[in-house]
């Protein structure tokens, strides 16, 4: 009876310490974003690099958001990124699902060879092939166009591998029943098997969304016309010219981060499941 309150106290203080540690670490990860947000709202009279640093904008103004939105082609960059996502994510998912299907569910000569050849592309070096890839795209006349931006990244060994794992987990009987019912192979794939892989499709879409939104090196190489720039490239371009105007730049960065953060929070459980799926696979 005497012991009980003591252990409770121990437990509570231990838990409090744990939360303190968790919050402290959280500050390291979220601090830069909070600083960014407060900077974007600070008025011109408030020093961004004051000491001691202040996180509260006094007064809070939205001038810099308006400037980022009007003075520089931010809406254009944002729209481009959205369009690229609308084109690339479904195309990537469709091709991945299409390619992985026969590799998992059909028997045909050369299947293993083709599978390993696709997996091997994961180990082909990005830097080694960067210049020759540019030359090929240039010879196809696709430099400075979205075709050149989109086509090289549409299929990847890793997604095909994950998708194949997902197909392999489906029992064979489902397909056999559909074939006996007289479904053609495309019907079987599209309306019977594909819907069963929904969790993997969701995870792949989430990763594709993030990677398209954040892609930088390839757009930097392939695009010259700034009306075609996605947001990431637009930001880097602006930080070169507008870099000294910290608050407007901060507002621009905030605008670029909002869609991805909303998407991340809405979809966060798919990140974990997708990642764990990839490790088990």
């Amino acid at each position: 009876m005497i012991k009980r309150p003591k252990t409770n106290w121990m437990k509570i203080s231990k838990l409090a310490l744990l939360y303190l540690l968790l919050i402290g670490v959280a500050c390291i990860f979220i601090g830069p974003f909070l600083w960014l947000l407060s900077t974007a709202f600070k008025s011109n009279s408030q020093d961004v690099f004051s000491f001691p640093p202040s996180f509260i904008p006094k007064p809070a103004v939205i001038d810099h958001f308006i400037e980022a939105w009007t003075a520089i082609p931010f809406p254009r960059y944002l729209l481009n990124s959205f369009l690229l996502i609308i084109i690339m994510v479904p195309a990537h998912i469709f091709l991945t699902a299409l390619t992985a299907y026969p590799l998992a569910r059909m028997n045909f000569p050369g299947r293993n060879f083709i599978f390993y050849a696709i997996i091997a592309t994961m180990f082909l070096p990005e830097e080694g092939k960067l210049v020759p890839l540019y030359i090929i795209v240039e010879k196809l006349g696709l430099v400075d166009s979205w075709w050149g931006l989109i086509l090289p990244g549409l299929v990847g060994g890793f997604s095909i591998f994950l998708m194949r794992q997902s197909y392999l987990a489906i029992p064979k009987e489902i397909e056999e029943a559909a074939i006996i019912d007289g479904c053609g192979p495309f019907r079987v794939w599209w309306s019977i098997i594909l819907p069963l892989t929904r969790p993997t499709l969701a995870a792949l879409s989430v990763f594709a969304f993030i990677s398209v939104w954040n892609s930088f090196m390839w757009p930097l190489i392939i695009l010259k016309d700034d009306s075609l720039f996605p947001i990431s490239l637009g930001l880097a371009y602006l930080s070169g010219t507008f870099g000294t105007d910290v608050k407007t730049m901060a507002a621009g960065v905030v605008i670029s981060l909002v869609p991805v953060i909303i998407f991340y929070i809405a979809m966060q459980r798919h990140f974990v499941s997708g990642l764990q799926g990839s490790i088990k696979g």
């Binding site: 990860f29 974003f33 670029s256 981060l257 991805v260």
Partner: peptide, 16 residues
């Protein structure tokens, strides 16, 4: 929160 920086663009956080 700990995973948040992973999903943000390197360009954006590098500017910050």
């Amino acid at each position: 929160i700990y995973y948040l920086p992973v999903v943000t663009a390197m360009v954006a956080v590098a500017i910050v």
